[in-house]
Design a protein around this nucleic acid. Structure first.
Length: 213
DNA sequence: CTTACGATCATCT
DNA sequence: GATGATCGTAAGC
């Protein structure tokens, strides 16, 4: 009868717990595929299925912000798993990560693309674009669609207004992997994961996939 | 369809 | 002072 109440109950049951994130970063990146990113805004509910992610490690990963240790920007990567790491890039874009690994170990998963599910008209307004494939098919696009800025840096994504839920709607989907996009070092490692043949994966689809034989 | 490049600024060297 | 975990537009096939 009261959708808000139903919504809250569903969230309470299905939000991914901190233990989900307190594991190997690549594993978390793969398992986030098919899960649902959800945000409550004043106009309603925004949600989208995660279809593309990238894993970033710490000291041993030259593509990571934490490669040279803890700095002010990347400090959150070393904190509790399940926190949001949001940073500003290229003078105009915000990028959303979820912190992984145990406390004291740097790691994060970059959320790269979503398949919009709920709140599509709100996303259209935020993006000033109509085509559904252009709303959240890229890491900076989805933060704009969801209205996510640096204000969410350090936000606990295991509860509150921005969470990931276990809701998948996908049973068995084929997963591809490739080098990470837009990095100048460490692009050899296969740490980008995406749902094969999903039209919402970001357009930039480089090379590698496992071709079978 | 593809490739090329400018925008624009917080963070780090 | 240089550099991006990018995007949208423009121009070329």
């Amino acid at each position: 009868m009261f959708p808000v109440v139903l919504c809250t109950l569903e969230l309470a049951v299905r939000v991914l717990p901190r233990s989900f994130y307190s594991r190997d970063t690549s594993l978390v990146a793969r398992e986030l595929l098919g899960k649902t990113l959800m945000r409550h805004v004043s106009q309603g509910l925004l949600s989208g299925r995660i279809v593309e992610t990238e894993a970033y490690y710490g000291l041993e990963d030259p593509a990571s912000h934490s490669f040279r240790g803890k700095t002010r920007r990347c400090a959150v990567m070393w904190e509790r798993p399940g926190l949001a790491y949001v940073y500003f890039a290229y003078g105009m874009h915000f990028l959303l990560n979820v912190v992984t690994e145990e406390i004291g170990v740097a790691g994060a998963v970059l959320i790269r693309s979503l398949e919009p599910i709920e709140g599509i008209d709100i996303m259209r307004a935020n993006r000033r674009r109509g085509k559904i494939t252009e709303l959240a098919s890229g890491p900076a696009k989805l933060t704009e669609a969801f209205g996510i800025t640096c204000d969410f840096n350090g936000h606990d994504m295991t509860g509150g207004e921005l969470v990931v839920t276990a809701e998948s709607g996908l049973s068995d989907c084929a997963i591809g992997c490739s080098g990470r996009i837009g990095v100048s070092r460490g692009s050899d490692r296969q740490l980008r994961f995406y749902i094969l043949d999903n039209r919402f994966v970001s357009k930039n689809k480089p090379i590698a996939r496992h071709t079978g034989s």
